[in-house]
């Protein structure tokens, strides 16, 4: 039947156009114009060793570091091979228990004031590199204590690392925890 033949030929043509030429052009332009972004915004430590991506969050539990958000990825938190959220519903007892445990842990660490939502609830990607600016500032006392640094100096560092609203109105004031902790290690 002629329609089947036409369908097959057109299918091949459009597959080459949309599946070979198009991604080829995007890769070429992307790699030439934005090589760092196209390769994942990889970062190095001060000694040049690879330290992950600025876009992909990392887990931190040591009091000497700023803590990032809880992550629900399988095997271990911030596992980039298993992106995703907890998918716990709002009335699920498991969610409420997890939140209660995290609130208690934050209290035990001496965090002042009520627990910030971004530090006790897991992100959608499980890889969120950010916390809110206020949430970072709340942790200054602990990191300063852990490192024997002046709180003022740390507060300045956090403010320097803060990312404001894009174009002045999009998003929220936030801090990239990976970037902040790398800068912290470079302070010495």
């Amino acid at each position: 039947m002629k329609a089947i033949r036409t369908a097959m030929l057109l299918f091949i043509c459009l597959t080459v156009t949309a599946g070979v030429i198009y991604p080829g052009v995007v890769t070429l332009i992307g790699q030439l114009a934005f090589p760092r972004q196209a390769m994942g915004n990889l970062v190095q430590k001060a000694d040049g060793s690879p330290a992950g991506s600025l876009l992909i969050g990392q887990p931190f539990s040591d009091p000497k570091y700023f803590w990032s958000r809880p992550s629900a990825t399988s095997d271990f938190p911030y596992n980039p091979l298993a992106s995703g959220g907890s998918n716990l519903g709002p009335t699920n007892p498991d969610l409420l228990k997890q939140v209660a445990d995290r609130v208690a842990a934050l209290k035990a660490s001496g965090l002042p004031g009520p627990a910030p939502a971004d530090l006790v609830m897991a992100s959608g990607s499980g890889l969120d590199p950010h916390i809110r600016l206020e949430t970072a500032l709340l942790q200054v006392y602990r990191v300063a204590g852990g490192r024997g640094l002046q709180e003022d100096r740390l507060r300045r560092l956090v403010q320097e690392q803060a990312e404001g609203r894009q174009l002045g109105f999009l998003g929220v004031d936030r801090v990239n925890v990976v970037k902040l902790n790398l800068a912290l290690d470079n302070l010495k």
Binding site: R69, G85, S86, N87, L88, P90, L95, L96, V99, A100, V103, P114, A115, P116, A117, D118, V120, M121, A122, S123, G124, S125, D128, H130, I131, R132, V172, R174
Partner: peptide
């Protein structure tokens, strides 16, 4: 449980 504001479960900052 002492966490004011919106729910951040499943949301990106």
């Amino acid at each position: 449980l002492g966490v004011p504001g919106i729910s951040m479960e499943g949301k990106e900052v």
